[in-house]
Simulated scan of single mutants.
Amino acid sequence: MRFCKTYDFDHGIKALQLGWSLAGPPMMTVYCYLFGETMVDTGQSHMKKEALALAGSHGVKQIFLTHHHEDHSGNAAAIHSAQGATVYGHALTQTKLRTPYDILPYQKYVWGKTTPVSVNALAAKIDTSLGCMMPVHTPGHSKDHTVYFLPEQGIIFSGDLYLGDRIKFFRSDEDVGTQIASLKKVAAMDFDTVLCAHNPCLKNGKKHILTKLDFLENLYGDIVFLWEKGISERQIFKKLKLREARFIKYVCCGNVSMLNGVRSVIHNIG
């Protein structure tokens, strides 16, 4: 099944929601955003035809990647080749996308692979049709994760920084402590709209960011408290009455699970 839906948001921002599966509804969809000649993230390569069509119709000339994950960078090379769009991202994104990299079977199935592409360095301030846009390095979900802030409109393109008020699972390579620091950095900014790659919040965006921050800080504190009492990670999981999304954990071969969040905190505190 191919899922493609477009939305028109304020300030002339268009959102493209993309999803793919062999049969039935997609396991997860992803949003990429366009305004003027600018595109933020490019969707998964399984949906290259749709992403190329929209980028072409908008005459996209510059692409800004929030991070290297294949649901965000999947069509960057194709759009660059088709219309000469320049791709920008964090220095770590540049390094990651310089050559092919290995992904797990579930990532290949859900998103598809990312084709290597030349990524240019980010300026401290970026000129766009909506005024100055500022990149803000926000690691945690990935080391290269970056959000883009439009201060005049009070909008952030948040990639995977937000996702939801409460998190049901974590990737094995996520760093919960670093995510908390990144959420605090963003919460200090002046915005109301969070254009998340999976769950956009058109109003009360800062409130949602603060709610997630509160959730992660409480989870982190509870895990530290129990770990310092000598309780094992699996006992902590049970004592905090955390739940696994078993289907997701199974399909992702354990790479995505709630237990990964407990392990990340324990790793942080040594």
Rank of each mutant, 00 (worst) to 15 (best):
F3Y: 15
C4M: 14
L16D: 10
L16H: 12
L18Y: 01
G19D: 02
W20A: 04
M27A: 15
M28S: 14
V30C: 10
Y31M: 11
C32L: 13
Y33L: 08
Y33W: 06
L34W: 01
F35G: 15
M39K: 08
D41I: 03
D41W: 03
Q44V: 02
H46L: 06
E50F: 04
A51C: 09
A53P: 07
L65S: 01
H67G: 14
H72Q: 15
A76E: 03
A77V: 03
A77P: 03
H80N: 15
H80K: 09
S81C: 02
G84Q: 07
T86P: 03
A91D: 08
Q94R: 11
T95N: 11
Y101C: 08
D102H: 10
D102R: 12
V110M: 14
G112L: 00
V117W: 00
K125S: 13
P135H: 01
V147A: 04
E152V: 11
E152M: 08
Q153K: 15
Q153A: 14
I155S: 12
I155C: 13
I155G: 09
F170E: 10
R171P: 01
S172T: 08
D173E: 09
E174K: 07
T178S: 15
S182I: 04
L183A: 10
V186Y: 00
V186E: 01
D190L: 00
C196K: 04
N204W: 02
G205C: 07
T211R: 15
F215G: 09
Y220K: 11
Y220M: 02
G221E: 08
D222G: 10
V224L: 08
F225D: 15
L240D: 03
K241I: 01
R243N: 13
R243I: 05
I248N: 08
K249G: 12
N255D: 12
V256T: 09
S257M: 07
G261Q: 05
V262C: 13
V262L: 07
I266S: 12
I269S: 12
